[in-house]
């Protein structure tokens, strides 16, 4: 197994795993706590539209995805604040619109689309250095923001209205975190693809939440769980020749199942 480290593609994959575990651990906790998972789904699928357009024009697909993700995030947020459209309907519109645009443009693009599957289901072993730079920046921003403004972010997430009565910069931070969520999602598309990325934002958190009810501990624990699950999934996929993204999700789900079992036994012993 150690000989794998000598391959650049594998070290790249390991770095990507680490960065994704940290950024998804942080942002996922925020998204899960605020019950914004469905919004995350909308952003993820909307970003596929950007991938399609970028692919058609021969640009970096992740760049297209980033633009679409941020736009749809703001779009959903804007509709929610203005209240003209119900939030779940607005999410569904962005969700399917993005997918439709993506499919149309990829079909229009000349020639065969070999990358399509990798964007839908992830391909961590083809991560490039420029992908890593993008992931690195996003992760750093997430760490900085959540270290410097932890209390404020938690307050806004818990009770936005009360935070407003305390004169806190609620709207600014809501949009900022929405944008960061969108970028984290895009950065994770390489690892698990558009369709599976949602689980990186929820499975580690749900597992951590079985054992702790503190925001900060959930955040730190889910980083560890995510990292462990992704490395284990990567190993399993290497030896079984199964797609890495899907294998990672299956490993993380197994972790959750084991965690559930463990917490049940632990609580039974207490009582």
């Amino acid at each position: 197994m150690l000989e794998l480290i000598n391959y650049t593609f594998f070290t790249n994959a390991l770095i990507a795993t680490l960065l994704t575990a940290i950024s998804c651990g942080i942002i996922g906790t925020y998204i899960v706590s605020r019950r914004m998972v469905f919004i995350g789904g909308g952003i993820t699928h909307a970003s596929f539209g950007g991938i399609g357009i970028a692919y058609y024009f021969g640009l970096n697909p992740l760049f297209g995805a980033a633009v679409f993700a941020v736009l749809s995030a703001f779009g959903i947020n804007y509709f929610t604040y203005k209240g003209n459209i119900r939030q779940d309907s607005s999410i569904a519109i962005w969700w399917s619109l993005g997918m439709a645009i993506g499919i149309v443009f990829i079909t229009l693009a000349p020639g065969y689309a070999p990358n399509l599957m990798s964007f839908l289901f992830g391909s961590i072993l083809t991560v490039t250095t420029s992908d890593l730079v993008f992931m690195g920046i996003v992760t750093l921003v997430a760490i900085l923001l959540f270290t410097l403004f932890f209390k404020l972010i938690m307050m806004i997430a818990f009770d936005e209205e009360f935070a407003r009565t305390r004169n806190l910069p609620v709207t600014f931070f809501s949009y900022l975190l929405m944008m960061l969520s969108a970028l984290v999602i895009v950065a994770s598309i390489r690892v698990s693809g558009v369709i599976l990325v949602l689980s990186l934002l929820t499975l580690p958190q749900a597992t951590a939440n079985l054992f702790t009810k503190s925001f900060k501990t959930i955040m730190i624990t889910s980083i560890a769980i995510g990292l462990l699950g992704m490395i284990a999934g990567l190993m399993v996929s290497y030896y079984t020749n199964l797609p890495s993204g899907a294998t990672i999700i299956l490993v993380l789900t197994t972790f959750f199942g084991l965690g559930k079992l463990l917490s049940k036994i632990a609580f039974r012993q207490i009582s």
């Binding site: 706590s33 019950r35 403004f149 932890f150 209390k151 404020l152 938690m154 307050m155 997430a157 818990f158 009770d159 009360f162 935070a163 305390r166 004169n167 806190l168 910069p169 939440n209 702790t212 009810k213 503190s214 925001f215 959930i218």
Partner: peptide, 26 residues
């Protein structure tokens, strides 16, 4: 409120002291 939000009683009460000036330094 979302009663399942991961926050302690102490932190909820503490948030009542938040204001423009204090949110930066904690």
């Amino acid at each position: 409120f979302d009663s399942r939000f991961p926050v302690s009683v102490f932190d909820v009460i503490l948030s009542g002291l938040a204001g423009r000036k204090s949110w930066k330094q904690g």
